[in-house]
Design a protein around this nucleic acid. Structure first.
Lengths: 346, 346
DNA sequence: CCGAGGGCATAGAGCGCTCTCCCGACCCCA
DNA sequence: TGGGGTCGGGAGAGCGCTCTATGCCCTCGG
């Protein structure tokens, strides 16, 4: 970068061949004499050559970069943008997404650019970024059902893959979890433990996943002879879990089991129960959702419905890669199955 | 990206001016007749033009991208790389770093590329990435004192800024916290509460910050008339906090105050204390460090030494920006002051 | 012995942009 | 009115790479 980086031309001169030959050696090789290959490789070594990506992507029209976009709802103010980023990262869920994405991209010499799109300007920035060819496509994790970004990307014809099926249909690939089955697993666990009086802390109503988890839970409870299940709506945060549980416990002091739609809320549920003198799982069994890191470190460790986030993120990256390489034209969707992880809380 | 994106040439034709003029308008430089400016802007609007970044950075030698590198110790195996990413993100600390960095970069139309450098190959990848001109510089957060990456970057003459002063001196700018003062604040708080028997759970010995926090704490306690302070070494994780506190409590059952070198460990300390029947802060006062998100959500909420991570991260980004733009030649260091945040635990 | 054919290398034309000249028009003042 | 200065715009040379077209040479069939 600093003092005149060596160019293909320099290497060619050093090796006594032409620029094109060096280029062939550097990239996947097409018929180059092995002796010359070695010669070139030696010259590359000696000059410390590193291909300039700008020049390369100028002609290949590929950047080896994808945008990893966390997009929010509508219209966050300038001041809140930092907070948004911090909040997103505070959720252990997102770390797993990054882990899965990086795991897939790394062997493909591709790198994720982190972007936040929680305001109209930020969304415009994402679109511009892609249209300028800064990145080949976008992996989008929406934190809000009304997120307009997917539609914008689809309209612009930009390659993109979503985490979770969008509420409004959009012509983009996505990966998702069989949330209904997750709810079912939680219900089955509580039923198997013999819990009679059972309640649930759901995710936000507007989020499709919340509704599906809830439906799976309720349907299964009903089938198991418990047609009525009190529900309190939470917001996927610890605080909201505390609030929801406080309300539930006030109305139903005799609860024996609780299903919280994510681990953070389950943690809040446990806190409230303990503060109210209930033992978990002795008096009340608690099932969480996600199998995030808190599930294991929480006291007591949470029995939870595992969402294979890393695999899902990797699948996202794979789908995007296929779209970018033109191997896939039509939007596809990949559905993952949840799994019950039994620890101590239920 | 898809069907022939419009080029500068197209816009120029549309506006009836030359390529150079359009370029001038786009970059907002030099004297261009306002009337023509409007003309060009209209043409840009009509064609939907977006400057191709590859072409631009080919000539400017700038990418508008910086690498945000989380670098680990030595030689992590391929399988553990995902885990590394997940672990890093599980630490709420890192989310704050990202928030601060993004906050600074965003107005400057710069974006962070996320990279993990926890193995020799990964480190090579980072260097190559920078030397290829994929990014203009690197923001490095080391998770291990023996991290060789800073030296590699310095040797390669690549612009980079570190979070925390490296153990071995390296010719790179960095930001850091006055850790000694942080330890002092914690000690002063415990002294002010009248705690007699006090212990501390330190961070890993190898980490300079741990030693400084410890020194500040001990020196201040000594000055306050408590020359002997039992220490247990932790690893900045919740589990290590639990283990350390278990040991301390066994040897010193009469403890009245504990300083843990980060909030995660403080949380572990509180768990152990509660399980052993001690009330916090009634029986034992606990002071944490960082003021991370767990400090507020923990039960009880932690009194802690605040590290202004977002500001520090922003300062890192600013330093890097100055290095990249050539405004700053010599390595600089910026030191931040910690601050006591009083909640309930002490 | 000659021409066809194939492996291997080179030449050279861009990719889309910036930026340095350079030139024409206009202004000011003598 | 003319000379020097300034301002606004155009022409064109690359930036470093890929890739197609082309050419060389060696082998082999006729």
């Amino acid at each position: 970068m600093n003092r005149q980086a060596p160019t293909l031309e320099d290497v060619a001169r050093e090796a006594g061949v032409s620029r094109a030959t060096v280029s062939r050696v550097v990239n996947g090789v097409r018929n180059v004499d092995p002796a010359i290959q070695d010669l070139v490789r030696l010259a590359i070594e000696r000059t410390g050559y590193a291909p300039n990506r700008a020049a390369r992507s100028l002609v290949t029209r590929r950047t080896g970069t994808v945008a990893l976009v966390v997009s929010g709802a509508g219209d966050t103010s300038e001041q809140e943008q930092n907070a948004f980023a911090a909040r997103v990262f505070a959720d252990p869920f997102f770390g797993r997404v990054v882990g899965g994405v990086v795991g897939f991209l790394r062997p493909r010499a591709t790198h994720p650019v982190l972007m936040f799109a929680e305001s109209p300007e930020a969304r415009g920035e994402v679109l511009r970024y892609l249209r300028q060819g800064n990145a080949d496509g976008a992996l989008v994790v929406s934190t809000h059902p009304d997120d307009p970004l997917p539609a914008l990307l689809a309209d612009a014809g930009l390659p993109a893959v979503l985490f979770a099926r969008p509420v409004r249909p959009v012509a983009l690939s996505h990966v998702d979890l069989a949330h209904w089955d997750g709810g079912r697993l939680a219900a089955e666990r509580l039923l198997a433990r013999g819990c009679r009086k059972v309640a649930t802390v759901s995710g936000p109503w507007a989020v499709a996943a919340s509704q599906e988890r809830l439906a799976g839970f309720r349907d299964t409870m009903a089938r198991g002879g418990h047609p009525y299940v009190p529900v309190a709506e939470g917001g996927f945060t610890l605080d909201s879990g505390v609030a929801a549980m406080t309300g539930l416990l006030a109305e139903h002091p005799d609860l024996e089991g609780v299903f919280a739609a994510n681990d953070l809320m389950a943690q809040g549920v446990c806190q409230v129960l303990r503060e109210r003198g209930r033992r978990v799982p002795g008096d009340v069994a608690v099932v969480g959702f996600d199998d995030s890191s808190v599930a294991a470190t929480c006291r007591p460790p949470l029995t939870t419905v595992r969402q294979p986030v890393e695999d899902m993120a990797a699948a996202m990256a794979r789908l995007l890669d296929e779209h970018i390489r033109g191997l896939r034209d039509e939007p596809a969707s990949v559905l993952f199955e949840p799994e019950l992880v039994v620890r101590e809380s239920a």
